[in-house]
């Protein structure tokens, strides 16, 4: 059985043209990708490198002028006990990323959560609704400019008798 380290170095050389930057921290490899390459890279990782499980999709708000948001994907390779992190940076001017629902079905709800909390839209998502907040809620609460205490009256309360 090939070890995961071999798989990792193999994919880094074979996908070199589509990887912007590689980061190694405490034994965890992170690949930074351009968002136009995301779906094709994910498909290759699933079919050619055994990443059969998408563990998590999350967003971050870096509060910078360029490439303010990040969408982070945690992948697992069960047969070789491997872990890989993909990062796609998203600029405020174009808050869209292609959905990876077609690769891993589990991305459906994860991407809905990222959409709910950060307002990043996922192209070709089958059902892009808010995950936690009410459907008519007007804000995205995990953005840095959103006040921690919330906005008074943004979610109506039922009247007390």
């Amino acid at each position: 059985m090939p070890s995961f380290d071999e798989t990792l170095s193999r994919l880094q050389t074979e996908l070199a043209g589509r990887i912007l930057k590689t980061d190694l921290h405490r034994g965890e490899t992170t690949l930074f990708l351009d968002k136009k390459d995301l779906v094709s890279v994910c498909q290759t990782l699933k079919s050619g490198y055994g990443f059969n499980f998408l563990a998590d999709v999350l967003g971050t708000d870096r509060f910078t002028d360029d490439d303010r948001y990040e969408v982070v994907y945690h992948l697992r390779n069960f047969s070789e006990s491997g872990f890989l992190r993909l990062v796609v940076r998203v600029d405020e001017a174009d808050l869209t990323v292609d959905s990876v629902c077609g690769v891993w079905k589990t991305a459906n709800w994860e991407e809905r959560e990222v959409f709910d909390m950060y307002g990043i839209r996922f192209n070709n998502h089958p059902d892009l609704r808010r995950m936690y907040m009410p459907q008519d809620f007007a804000y995205h609460p995990l953005r840095k400019e959103f006040p921690l205490i919330g906005i008074e009256g943004s979610i109506p309360l039922p009247a007390k008798e």
Binding site: P141, L148, I149, G150, I151, I155, L157, K160, E161
Partner: peptide, 16 residues
């Protein structure tokens, strides 16, 4: 109480 945009500050705001 201070940091929670999603929590009703006391259930007594909706029912006695």
């Amino acid at each position: 109480w201070q940091h929670g945009y999603h929590v009703v500050k006391s259930v007594s705001r909706i029912i006695p």
